[in-house]
């Protein structure tokens, strides 16, 4: 049986009598077609909402870690974040540590799309999630990579700016991340 920190059982509660769907974090959810997300104009207000949403789920992991104590390994991040995103229907994510760089990879599903949400909104979710489980404010940058899903680089504001600049100058997504790692003494 699993020793996962993410428990799918009870993650969603259907209260048909009240006409409500809630997550374990007691946020009220609505089942809508994924295409509806595309119809929403992405702006600062929506991005802040998604960052708050990510913080809510990151706080759930943080509360769990405070409860169990100890020094959890990095796998709890992929475990809890991956479970939460999957249960919310936002995609299948894995965590990649490249040197010191923290990278998320959303795997494309059968529809050929990694997530029904835009990469900008998912970046906000991931940034809020990381912000809630640690002391630092992370920025998350969506990166292009051909054929292997969507990549997201997470780092401080300066690092995100550097990676963005290199990508805009023509560097590949992972090349830019590795260039950042090589500039850091290991």
């Amino acid at each position: 049986m699993t020793d996962s920190v993410f428990d799918a059982a009870g993650f969603l509660t259907f209260d048909l009598a009240a006409g409500e769907l809630r997550s374990r974090e007691n946020e009220r959810l609505v089942v809508i077609p994924a295409e509806t997300l595309d119809a929403l104009p992405v702006g600062q207000a929506l991005e802040q909402t998604w960052r708050r949403w990510g913080r809510l789920h990151g706080a759930s992991l943080a509360a769990h870690l405070r409860k169990v104590g100890g020094r959890p390994g990095i796998e709890v991040l992929a475990d809890h974040l991956g479970g939460s995103l999957a249960a919310l229907g936002l995609g299948k994510i894995s965590v990649e540590i490249r040197g010191d760089a923290l990278v998320f990879r959303l795997t494309e599903n059968k529809s050929g799309r990694a997530s029904p949400a835009s990469r900008d909104l998912l970046s906000c979710f991931l940034g809020g999630y990381l912000e809630a489980i640690g002391p630092d404010r992370f920025e998350v940058l969506p990166l292009d990579e051909q054929g292997r899903g969507a990549l997201f680089f997470a780092g401080c504001t300066e690092a995100v700016g550097k990676v963005r600049g290199w990508v805009e100058q023509g560097a590949g997504a992972l090349e830019a991340v590795e260039r950042l790692s090589k500039g850091q003494a290991i």
């Binding site: 996962s4 993410f6 990095i74 796998e75 991040l77 992929a78 475990d79 040197g99 640690g134 290991i186």
Partner: peptide, 25 residues
């Protein structure tokens, strides 16, 4: 229950490092 096994965590860095959540972050 979707995560009877853990999803992939790829550790491509040096194995000698500390791989706790706090250290990685």
């Amino acid at each position: 229950t979707p995560f009877a096994s853990r999803p992939v965590t790829r550790l491509l860095g040096a194995l000698q490092r500390e791989w706790t959540l706090n250290a990685v972050l």
